[in-house]
Amino acid sequence: MIRTIIGLVIVLALSAIVVSSVSDYSMPSELIGVGRGYTEQGVNDTGSVNLVTAVVVAYRGLDTLGEVVVLFSASTAVVLILTLIPIGANPTPPSSIVAFTAGILPGAIVLFGIYIITHGHLSPGGGFPGGAVVASAFLLVMLGSNTIPGKSKFLTSIESIAGLTFGLLGFWGMLTLGQFLNNLVLPAGSPGRIISAGIIPLISLAIGAKVASELSGVFASYRKAGGEK
């Protein structure tokens, strides 16, 4: 009872603070500051039609590199903890519906994921969501089989190569144009074409491969640890 009242008081106090701080806030009628700069010069600066990708990969590429590092350390920690658990026996076989779906759908899902990754600079999407979609296809394959996934050198090497590619593309900009992750070491091209926007498509590919392989690795280690004794 006391705890409920204390919780209620805290929530009410917090909402009072929030309401008082945003009470004089109104929707701006036009973009100001850095947002205005991005929308006015984004396409000229980067050649990317999708301004969100332009911000995420070109203007704020260093943040994305940090995000990739965060994901890398998180997945490494998860896999490390899960390898402490002894590998279980084979999981229970999937139902016929799951087995049938896992036989036909993953190809289409992987194709859609690759589309999201490669068209990141043209349409909504990019490396992170595309990589997650590709990883979900691998998850479906895992759920459709009744054996535990084996060790894969392939996954880890893809992961390493992708991470290395991201870093090296950054240093390429540093060596040629004097700026880490400068987008225009490759020509911006004509906006709207699939081969345009400097190194954005390459970085999208690297991020997509890294996210897909990392998440697949996490799923695989969960699947190994989740088997019956």
Partner: peptide
Amino acid sequence: DVAMTEASIGSGLTTVIFLF
């Protein structure tokens, strides 16, 4: 863009990891 990321990672993969 955000909607796609939220749908695939937030509601898809996170839920699956919790289930595992």
